[in-house]
Amino acid sequence: MEDLKLTLKQQIIESLNLQGMTPADIDDNAPLFGDGLGLDSIDSLELMVLLERNYGIKIEDAREGRKVLESVASMAAYIEQNRKI
C-alpha cells in the first residue's frame, strides 16, 4: 500500500504538473481539493484520466468520484480494490 501511495503521488505530480513539489510534500490524508493541495475541477478530470490510463478504472458516478478523489489515501484504497491493470 505504501508503494502504491508513493507511485500515485508521483503520477499526480507529473500529471498535474505540480512544479517544485515532491511526494514528501503531499500528505496521505490531506484533502486534494480546497484547503489541501488546492486542486480544481479540471484537475479532477485529469485525475479521472490518470485512474483510467494507469489502473483501468472508470468512475461513472460523480458522487463516488468525489469520495475517491478526497485524498491520496482514499485514491490508493480504491485503486487497490478496483484496479484492472
Binding site: 479540471i42 478530470l45 485529469e46 484520466v49 483510467e52 490510463r53
Partner: peptide, 13 residues
C-alpha cells in the same frame, strides 16, 4: 496513441 480514450482535458481546453 490512446485510441481516442482517456484523453487529457487540459490540452483540448
Amino acid at each position: 496513441r490512446l485510441k481516442e480514450e482517456a484523453l487529457n482535458p487540459t490540452y483540448f481546453i
